[in-house]
Amino acid sequence: MGYEKFKILKSSVVPLPIENVDTDQIIPARFLKATERVGFGDNLFRDWRYHADNTKKKDFVLNNNNYSGKILVGGKNFGSGSSREHAAWAIYDYGFRCVISSFFADIFKNNCLNIGVLPVQVSPNFLDKIFEIVFKNPQTNLVIDLKKQTVEIEGTSQIENFDINGYKKNNLLNGYDDIDYLLNIKDSIQTFSTKTPL
């Protein structure tokens, strides 16, 4: 499935300063029953966002009108738990294009990269700085430049570099897909398969 190319993202952010946000919170298992990739954003953080009677929980950040934007900022170890790509889909479908944290769970990070959500890992200090500044002024924009691999808190001198491998970076910049790449080397895969030990 194609996704928007990622170049420079300038947006206000939604802060979620909780550690170990697991994929069961991002999208509870009971919402994984779809056979198509549609509508997952409605159930993003379902049980933190809504009461059992479907009324909104006022103190949850997604229900706070002060905060909006295409960037979600979470605490350390974001996306731990299940491999469900539905978690990344829910984040994308809600409108986020980037998740920032000081540490990501592996599978979640891969899932994000595969669907066009950029996971940006920053230092714990920089993460604290983002939270501090955004809580003071919710309108604060972050500027994420994928080509330069920088994240900047607009209007401050706070800027940090982030890591991403060259292959994935190129994919995101151009909207490329791993499967297209693999289908192009199908012959060598088939040759390889005849030599595998099992």
């Binding site: 499935m1 299940s82 491999s83 469900r84 790509e85 539905h86 990344a88 599978i107 891969n110 899932n111 595969n114 669907i115 791993d178 499967i179 790449y181 693999l182 289908l183 199908k186 895969i189 398969s193």
Partner: peptide, 19 residues
């Protein structure tokens, strides 16, 4: 190891995964 659905599609279509 566990994989996401994009990777399931990858393995179904090419028997390979990028890791």
């Amino acid at each position: 190891f566990g994989i996401g659905t994009s990777e399931v599609e990858m393995v179904l279509s090419t028997q390979c995964i990028m890791q």
